[in-house]
Amino acid sequence: MEWNKKIKEGLQDYEAAPPEQSWDAISKELNKNQENTIPIRSNYATAVSWIRYAAAAIVIGFIVMVSFNKPFQNSIKDTLQGPGTKAAVVESKLAISNDSLPLKDSSKKQFPN
């Protein structure tokens, strides 16, 4: 079977120049396939879109809560205009007025000659 070995060696790496138009046909087919496939999104792009959806959902949820929930509205009002704030304003006014009172002789006592 010497011929078998020879033919195998001779033809296994046999090369022939392909027709010139064959690459054009292949690239045309490749382009056609690429047009039909949905582009694969990168992980980063997917994460960004999920973050956007999450942020939009939080904003919409907050708006819905404020619009339809009376106790929630009241609690916000109380927080903004409630007694706590008023008291703080009154206290700060008193503090200002106290600070503006004329000093007594204490200064003399504190800083003797």
Binding site: L11, Y14, A16, P18, S22
Partner: peptide
């Protein structure tokens, strides 16, 4: 690789036109 692969196609095909189709 096209020259080597076309060589294979020619061996298996009856006509060069068939070999071109197999290559593609």
């Amino acid at each position: 690789f096209s020259a080597k692969m076309y060589g294979i196609c020619l061996r298996y095909a009856h006509h060069p036109e068939d070999a071109k189709d197999i290559l593609q």
